[in-house]
Amino acid sequence: MAFDSLDAFFAMGGHGAYVWSAWAVAALAMVGSVVHARAEHHRLLRDIQRRVRRDTTTPRADHNAS
């Protein structure tokens, strides 16, 4: 352990603001891309499912009507 206490760990020897902001931006970019990729996946699947439902239900409805 390079630090004596938790406070010292967060202070980073006086450079806390720099170290933590750099790490925060890196973490944000990485977590952000994961969240984005997951959301994109679900959205695409939902869109395809909606299209499949529309294609399978509407022709039958038309058929019954005629």
């Binding site: 390079a2 630090f3 760990f9 020897g13 006086g14 450079h15 170290v19 750099a22 790490w23 890196a26």
Partner: peptide, 18 residues
């Protein structure tokens, strides 16, 4: 938390890891 601080730059060198 565990790597030793740099003798010149102190703890600011920990930015190197990102």
């Amino acid at each position: 938390a565990f790597a030793p601080a740099d003798y010149q730059q102190g703890d600011s060198f920990r930015i190197i890891y990102v």
